[in-house]
Design a binder for these strands. Structure first.
Lengths: 179, 179
DNA sequence: GTCTATACTCCGATAGAC
DNA sequence: GTCTATCGGAGTATAGAC
């Protein structure tokens, strides 16, 4: 029953992420998932409904990770884990992350619909507090700077396949914050 | 004479950047540019030819900026100007930059075709040399880290409209390298 | 299977530059 | 008078959502 539905979900996440949402036709999805095209519309109404379902799943697992950080008290651990964020995310949710990034470049309506700020606002607060605890001169700026670095790491992971090099860089950045 | 041609070029850069290449139909471009649809094909052969023309123009102005850096000797100035890179680019080539970024998320063929690494390889070399001159312990890593920061700055500028905040952050980052 | 959107073609006509 | 840029519209083929 839900096997085919899951099939559609998995296949279209992969296709949307790697070929783009607009470039992926429903018939392509149907073929790749081994289902009839009609089933897609039976389950998800229309193509955008399918996109909604996919994004919702991925968002959940990222929220789970942020919640972990909320329960952490040691500021150095928080910073360290925040730097790990792209590594973790990219490993387990590579396709999801790429899809969400790509949606920012779609039409303004689509971009707005899937632009999730809440998770990041939380992360920002946590990080700023961590820097405050560590007596940094300018915690807000430090937080913004680190956030930038994390954003950069995300886009790097998307392009660079050399995992060892990526990990070296992650550790190098960590060493700037934790001695 | 070429007024209409320029019109097409300007309008489609804006549309491609903000709505996406695939989402922008040639008829939409024609209407927005106030020209007949046929004229687009007369000038550029097909839709991809139009994209080529647009990208070529923007690439040129970015190359101009990198060439400036090549002629700079003071390592601190090089680093400072590299950090300024996204600010300059985003101010003068916002749409172009966004378009090129968005193409990375298109089909693999399109992504590969417009993925320009040469400019960045040059920039990488220049920066690594600068860090070597300044006797940093690990110039290669420092370069990669700074490169990451610059990538992060680019994506931030794309989203964040508050120019003053952006500039503050840029200066904060500069202060990490130049005392 | 239906219907619409889209890339692309073809052509006759016009107006201005040389 | 020719050449070039352009218009406007009819028309085709195909792909894609549903």
């Amino acid at each position: 029953m839900t096997i085919k539905r899951d099939n559609i979900l998995n296949v279209s996440l992969e296709l949307f992420a790697n070929q783009g949402y607009v470039n992926t036709s429903t018939s392509k999805i149907a073929k790749a998932a081994g289902v009839s095209e009609g089933l897609i519309f039976r389950h998800f109404g229309n193509k955008e409904g399918l996109l909604d379902a996919i994004v919702a799943i991925g968002t959940q697992s990222i929220e789970d990770y942020t919640t972990e950080l909320l329960n952490e008290n040691d500021p150095k651990k928080i910073i360290s884990q925040a730097i790990d964020f792209p590594v973790i995310i990219m490993k387990e949710n590579k396709d999801y992350w790429q899809l969400v990034s790509s949606l920012k470049f779609q039409s303004p309506e689509i971009a707005a619909k899937y632009h999730n700020t809440e998770i990041f606002k939380q992360l920002e607060e946590i990080l700023e507090k961590a820097f405050t605890k560590l007596n940094y001169e300018n915690p807000e700026m430090e937080m913004k700077y680190l956030f930038l670095t994390i954003a950069g790491l995300s886009s790097m992971h998307k392009q660079n396949k050399d995992e060892e090099a990526n990990l070296n860089l992650v550790n190098f950045i960590k060493s700037k914050y934790i001695n």
